[in-house]
């Protein structure tokens, strides 16, 4: 086998050379084609943080939130496409602690992302999937969640409440605070 190859190298025929050149140019062309394809598919890796995928989003007049209560609020995803439909509206839980202090929690349970529901009477968040339970302040109360609720950073400007959001919070990418 090696002898034969050695022989061919010594006495290259025209066909032989053409074949090898053909393979080589196609290898180069293949790589050239692969670059945009792979880049397109794995753009998530090329740009891990889509140009500021988190932004400050207004949640309305701060005074609509009653002190001592937790309410469902929804905001429009900052980076929407026209065909997003209802999925562009993202819910979150807003807790007003006092005049100045707000806590805004992501709707997603930290266990597997199901929507947690607030129960005003027992002051608990409960998850309908695997029974994760959280206290009023978002800390884990019971069930399988590995941590407390994901919490948005908040600010109040000109009487308006803002949260920093725009991503689906997961354990590897909790909301930045």
């Amino acid at each position: 086998m090696t002898e034969q190859t050695a022989n061919e190298v010594k006495n290259p025929t025209r066909r032989n050379v053409l074949f090898k050149v053909g393979v080589a140019v196609n290898a180069v062309a293949g790589v050239l084609v692969a670059i945009p394809i792979v880049g397109y598919i794995f753009s998530a890796f090329a740009h891990p943080k889509l140009v500021g995928s988190e932004a400050w989003i207004p949640l309305g007049d701060a005074n609509t939130y009653v002190t001592g209560q937790t309410r469902l609020a929804t905001y429009r995803n900052p980076f929407t496409r026209p065909w997003d439909g209802a999925t562009a509206e993202i819910p979150c839980w807003v807790r007003r602690i006092d005049e100045r202090k707000f806590q805004v929690f992501a709707i997603n349970c930290t266990h597997l992302g199901c929507p947690v529901r607030w129960f005003q009477e027992s002051k608990l968040f409960m998850c309908p999937c695997h029974g994760g339970v959280y206290y009023e302040d978002g800390s884990k109360a019971a069930g399988p969640p590995p941590r407390g609720l994901f919490e948005y950073s908040t600010k109040v400007e000109n009487g308006k409440l803002y949260v920093k959001g725009g991503i689906l919070p997961t354990l590897s990418e909790p909301l930045t605070s």
């Binding site: 889509l50 995928s53 065909w83 997003d84 439909g85 993202i90 725009g166 991503i167 990418e173």
Partner: peptide, 14 residues
């Protein structure tokens, strides 16, 4: 990044 790859972005959308 895998989440972004799966969802085609940072969040479930179009």
């Amino acid at each position: 990044r895998l989440v972004h790859l799966l969802l085609g972005g940072p969040i479930i959308a179009g």
